[in-house]
Design a protein around this nucleic acid. Structure first.
Lengths: 207, 207
DNA sequence: GACCGCCTCACACTTTTTTGTGATTGTCAC
DNA sequence: GTGACAATCACAAAAAAGTGTGAGGCGGTC
């Protein structure tokens, strides 16, 4: 029996999901909460198998709630349920400890499938969201799709990213150290930053 | 019309796939190769939409082939097709530029689905594989799982990661700039690096 | 109590980075 | 052929980072 808890502020959706899950064989949904605060308070003592968590909640958001709850209940699996499809929310959710990421528009049958999957060691998410995740995985090339930097500047920036010193970069590219200085200066100007680390945070979107 | 190329050393599988894809409406599969070397040679001039790439090939493996081909054909999408389910092969493939990862046991209908998905901006992979990806994701951004640094050092390192200057960090933590220097020094010693960027590459495993 | 690790601070010195202000060459578009 | 811009180099100065050495206080453990 898989015990599911729902955190969702819109009553219709919350009760709809609860009804859906409760009516499926092998699943129970005895509790649901309309806010992150209430969930954070109650969930640890309930120790459910799965929590379906909305992101946009009044007060504390769902991501923060997952961060707190995953800490207290490492065994519980969290699936985000949201309308947001942006990188920021996806990555933050996953970093916070979510194992799945569903969009609100997901069909009920797929939701049940996702709950099953997550308990079997899977990570249910749409193919599109998976792409975002794996793209971030390979963000070495994110320098290349920057269109304000020239090829040479990108080359220098990659070297800067490796932590090389100006003199080392100059040797590698077989130019004067003054040239590297110039490139670095232009790069910083274009990116509107004033240090190597800031520039890297900017292009790698890491922050 | 989606043009697919197959790289697979086992003739039965290769021809089977070619037949399967060729028989589906909206897809063509005019070329296939039994080795990575042949594919690396020929694919750039063919510029297919999708390449279905085996990993275990005689000679050069499929991951290396993807690394080379993705460089030359950024628009082409690569889907790995393999029996390997280990983290190493998955991560290396994705880092090399693959957009999807299928197991050999995948049903033919799912393979066609995957090819469609990948051209629509998705990343077809099993739920289990997605989990492995997001699990590794979580380890990334956490300086916290580093057990050789003290809490204060981690705090300083996080500030260093933001690109803050020593004086700014000192102000933020309300200590002397000399203290920040000391912390930075200890951090570099422990991580065995000699610059901020190197330290960040080390903890974020970016290299 | 002695020892040790963590956090704190200080001074001095070297190296590197960042910034300011140039200048030359070559290429490409208009 | 002029203007815009990329790439190259130069000199100089200010700011910041990195390194060596030392030291005091504080909370734990043995």
């Amino acid at each position: 029996m898989i015990d599911v808890i729902i955190v969702e502020d819109i009553r219709e959706i919350r009760e709809g999901l609860q009804l859906l899950i409760g009516s499926c064989e092998g699943f129970t949904c005895t509790h649901s909460f309309p806010s992150a605060e209430l969930a954070v308070e109650a969930v640890p003592s309930l120790g459910p198998d799965v929590v379906l968590m909305d992101i946009n909640l009044p007060g504390m958001n769902g991501i923060e709630a997952v961060r707190i709850l995953k800490e207290k209940c490492p065994a519980t699996l969290f699936i985000m349920s949201t309308v947001y499809e942006d990188d920021e929310n996806i990555f933050e959710s996953l970093k916070a400890g979510a194992s799945g990421y569903l969009l609100k528009k997901t069909a009920p049958s797929r939701i049940m499938e996702a709950i099953t999957e997550v308990t079997q060691g899977g990570s249910p998410m749409s193919s599109q969201i998976a792409r975002k995740v794996i793209d971030s995985f390979r963000k070495k090339d994110s320098i290349d799709d920057n269109d304000i930097l020239t090829p040479k500047e990108k080359e220098v920036l990659k070297a800067l990213a490796k932590g090389l010193r100006y003199k080392e970069i100059a040797a590698q590219l077989d130019v004067s150290i003054e040239t590297i200085r110039s490139h670095a200066r232009r790069i910083y100007e274009k990116l509107q930053v004033q240090s190597r680390t800031e520039a890297l945070n900017k292009v790698f979107g890491r922050n």
